[in-house]
Simulated assay, not measured.
Amino acid sequence: MEDQGIVHLYLERSQQALVETKNKYGAYCKAIARNILSNYSDIEECENDTYLAAWNAIPPNMPRKFSVFLGRITRHIALDKYGYNTAKKRNREFEVILTELEGCIASPETVETEYEAGEIASLINQFLYALDEQARNLFIRRYWYSDSIKNLTMRFNMSSSKVKSILFRTRNKLRDHLHKEGVNL
């Protein structure tokens, strides 16, 4: 079923919307959650919570791109679950990903308003659009989808050192871009 048809089912409050969403995007949502969480039951819970959140959000929200809408919901739920799970312990794999980006973007404590956060997001998008396709895809897969270095090497058919090198240079370019635009890190 096409995305518009699924969204229409949500608007009609049809339970079939959930079935169609799971059929089309279940694996996608699980993959996003799996890259952040390591426990299978947490991943399944995150997937189901995504469907509930989509049910509650449509209407009033009308997603422009349904897959991105679901991906964003899944990611936020998985990050919340990760925070809950790691209140006393650490997930080393995901902790490394967060640490890599620390020097590039300002922490939430330094961003005082929603407007500033939106401006920084706009600058990051501008930066990403200016990158070559390979660097952009690596950056997004690593820092949005939380793919491991091993998965990136297989996906892009590169050595681990090349992937790390491209990500390192891209982070440095992002830091320089944000600094040039007046974002204090």
Rank of each mutant, 00 (worst) to 15 (best):
W144R: 13
K24E: 11
T170N: 05
V163C: 14
V183E: 04
L11S: 01
V111A: 04
V96W: 03
K89G: 03
N137F: 02
N23F: 09
A121L: 11
F66G: 02
R142S: 11
D147F: 13
Y145N: 14
R13C: 03
R72C: 04
I6K: 01
K150V: 08
N91T: 01
M62I: 15
F69T: 05
A87G: 09
P63R: 04
R92S: 14
T99I: 03
R64C: 02
A57H: 04
S14Q: 14
E133M: 06
L70P: 01
L11V: 04
T170M: 02
I105Q: 00
E95M: 02
E44R: 13
G5S: 15
K65I: 14
V96M: 08
R171E: 00
S165E: 12
E133A: 12
Y25N: 11
R171I: 00
T50F: 05
Y10M: 12
C104F: 00
A33L: 10
F168N: 03
R155P: 00
L178W: 05
M1N: 08
A135K: 11
V163W: 09
N184E: 15
E181W: 02
G26Q: 09
L128W: 02
F66A: 03
A135C: 06
Q15C: 03
I166D: 00
S67P: 00
S41A: 08
Y25R: 07
R155A: 14
T99D: 07
M154S: 09
S14W: 10
L52S: 14
S122R: 14
L52F: 08
R169V: 01
S14H: 15
F156E: 09
G118V: 04
Q134D: 08
R141L: 07
I36G: 04
T50G: 13
